[in-house]
Design a protein around this nucleic acid. Sequence first.
DNA 1: CCGGATTTCTGAATGCATTCAGTCACGGTG
DNA 2: CACCGTGACTGAATGCATTCAGAAATCCGG
Lengths: 354, 354
Amino acid sequence: MTTLRDIAEALGVSRTSVSNAFNRPDQLSPDLKDRILAKAKELGYLGPDPVARMLRTGQAGAIGIVFAESLPFAFSDPAAITLLQGVAAVCEPVDKALVLLPALDEAAAQTAIRSAAVDGFIVYCLPEGSPVMPALRERGRPLATVDQRPIPGIPAVRIDDRAGAETCARHLLDLGHRRFGIIAMEMNLTSTGGLVTGDRFADSRFSGTTERLRGYERGLGRAGILLDQVVIYEADDPGEEAGKTAALTVLQQSPRPTALLVMSDRLAIGAMQAAEALGLAVPRDLSIVGFDDIPAAAQVTPALTTIRQPFFEKGRTVAAAVLDPAATPDVTLFPYDLIVRSSTGPAPDRAVGS
Amino acid sequence: MTTLRDIAEALGVSRTSVSNAFNRPDQLSPDLKDRILAKAKELGYLGPDPVARMLRTGQAGAIGIVFAESLPFAFSDPAAITLLQGVAAVCEPVDKALVLLPALDEAAAQTAIRSAAVDGFIVYCLPEGSPVMPALRERGRPLATVDQRPIPGIPAVRIDDRAGAETCARHLLDLGHRRFGIIAMEMNLTSTGGLVTGDRFADSRFSGTTERLRGYERGLGRAGILLDQVVIYEADDPGEEAGKTAALTVLQQSPRPTALLVMSDRLAIGAMQAAEALGLAVPRDLSIVGFDDIPAAAQVTPALTTIRQPFFEKGRTVAAAVLDPAATPDVTLFPYDLIVRSSTGPAPDRAVGS
DNA sequence: CCGGATTTCTGAATGCATTCAGTCACGGTG
DNA sequence: CACCGTGACTGAATGCATTCAGAAATCCGG
């Protein structure tokens, strides 16, 4: 394998000059530059080795992203994809590559983190207490988190999930609903799903789940409804199928809820399928509110009422935070919006409201 | 900044031992190992520098992916995402990270390629003659292409686009259609879109576009229909909006086509929106066939008839090809399937067929 | 033709860890 | 007691390029 040195020797010039020929051609007489480049081609030199350059300059030219779940799984999440788009949109103009760290499990994530050549890490949706976080800190690189519980000293990007969820609850209350079901996202990495009682949520490791539940609680509380009066089902994964399974159970409780508070659009879309399977018309018999406003939310029939949050912007912001940690506030809170579409309507029979 | 050497000196042991303490703890007496680890912690050592290790071992522990378009754009493509999932599924178990190379434009892609610390590259959907390809070869790393014209000596993964497209055409022919419109994907990176004649496709740089058109041509040829008897519109980007714009024009030609051959599902979904805007019922007034079978194809109403191709599998295969180039055949052709759903039906008035 | 400003080029230190081929000491064996 | 195998540990070469400070050469005006 040819190196800078070989070329320098073959030509009787210094290594510096060869390096300059590639990196700062203006520092060299055109003649020498051409001779160097020609010799390089002749010897089959592949150009300065990027790794050696990194070692010398201390710049990796890349930033890493770590997800709580395995990569193929993370890619199935439209919200994560949009976030990634935002991240890419700021990395690209500054020529930073994006490194997706494999995270088959927590151990794998840790080794990946230890051996990643990156200038900083974006941390997405890690559960509280994850051992991945210490591994990240040990690398001593800039860090920023998104959609997880803020850690003091590390820039965090998120929305006010609690307030968003409260808004959902109030929307349904305003429509006259009084019997609710809640379909929750996972509370931790190893969730098996199933019906749960409100207090078990104290164990939740995922900030989004915890906060949204608290938000529902607060919202429903305004009508005097307590969490143990509502059916709560924890989905065992973030996919539509899990939402369907969850809703199937929730909708077979009696008295049947007239409205479903669902923590994500994917789950909500699954819930709509369940409603259809049970012959319930949405929103006539059942109202459903999602969360996130993923692209599919507007496309399903009926279109989903949901909370919109700016994933793309969030992506841009975390990326910027990692790129320039100094200029970043501790936590950036983005606005959210209730988008009322066709999946919510007046409670079917107000007289029955508990 | 603390290094291996500092610890070795502080403890009066060799660098080798310190290195071993981290990488091969079994080579060391437990006592020494503990002392080293303790001292490392004490001195705030962050662990062996991954870049230095890469330099020494020649392993980057990552593979790069290059797209023809800018990253945020690439992420909007459901097919690319599924492919990525497949790639991730094989990289993850072998602890390889995935490096997304920024490609704001071709020049940016080239610098990114030159400075990426990766063990190999996956090349997705590059147009023919792209200057990115030579840059890739210069790096001298394993390469594999997917969804683009195969390059001799480089493993390629694809489907038989031509045959797939021919199948679409025959399907419509079998339903009695005789007046066709074609909505084509971009022919090159700088396409501005618009109506085109069949022969201009000789200029197409994107293999998928070229092949699919040839396939339509061959299919329609069986009924004696030549390409210049059909309206062809080249979309100016891969998005749904572009499909709608295209279809709006195509459907206003007279005589109006009774069937649309659309080169991708995203464009096809856009075309369905156009049909709706024009008050045409699908499939009663107009049949539409897409290509790719992205998840949305099954979800739109009416569900889209399309060609299914195994993106996930394709991803796995290219990734495997880069990881182990020796064991890889020159070109891997995946099967495709015509999935007949509800967007195609009998021609409205067979008597009018040209 | 001279002094100083430029331009061009070089030396050598530096970044950090891995790894092969041993050395050394110790315990067991005949 | 001599010899050998084994485990523990070390030396030093090696991977490849960047960069600062300064030397050498060239050029300018006067």
